[in-house]
């Protein structure tokens, strides 16, 4: 029996995408398999680790817990929207320079969470960074450099805003 597909129109990284999807397809699978945006990673598949975080209408969301059909008409930004290797976003620059990654699997989700924080709070305290980033798991770094990277990104973004 063929499963009825649903039409979907969504803005992903500034580009409007129209697609037909199975009703139970997760947003993470839609991004990874249908659009080839494999920067969004699937870690725990039940909304705890944060590796699959994307921006959904300006707020971070677990794409492994979100059905693709739920984002009809929405605006999605994935890690691929942040910057390119030639023109990195300050957050990307900061995670690179401050060694905010080892295996890198959690990194895209970390960047999205950090982006959400810095967009609403451009000058976070260390405690605010820790609090906000506690929803993203990393098994490699011990988090020290991740927190340093977010703090440094805030500085870089402030410089950009002033300069």
């Amino acid at each position: 029996m063929a499963i009825k597909k649903h039409e979907l129109s969504v803005e992903v990284n500034g580009r409007t995408v129209r697609a037909e999807v199975e009703p139970r397809m997760m947003l993470s699978d839609f991004l990874r398999h249908e659009l080839g945006l494999t920067g969004t990673h699937v870690g725990c598949e039940h909304g705890v680790c944060g590796a699959c975080n994307v921006m959904l209408n300006g707020r971070s969301a677990r794409s492994c817990l979100t059905y693709a059909v739920q984002v009809d008409g929405a605006k999605i930004e994935t890690v691929e929207s942040l910057g390119t290797i030639d023109k990195l976003h300050p957050l990307q620059q900061a995670f690179w320079e401050k060694h905010g990654l080892q295996c890198g699997f959690c990194t895209p989700g970390m960047l999205i969470s950090a982006l959400e924080l810095l967009e609403k709070n451009p000058k976070p305290t260390r405690e605010e960074i820790v609090d906000h980033m506690s929803g993203n798991l990393c098994r490699c770094t011990g988090y020290q450099n991740i927190i340093d990277a977010v703090a440094y990104a805030a500085e870089l973004m402030a410089e950009q805003a002033n300069g």
Binding site: L82, I85, L88, L101, G104
Partner: peptide, 22 residues
């Protein structure tokens, strides 16, 4: 020096096994 693949990781371009196009 930072990790050699750091620029790929921060842009989501680093490929893991499940990211390799088949």
């Amino acid at each position: 020096l930072p990790h050699d693949a750091a620029p790929l990781h921060v842009t989501g371009a680093a490929r893991y096994v499940d990211d390799i196009p088949a």
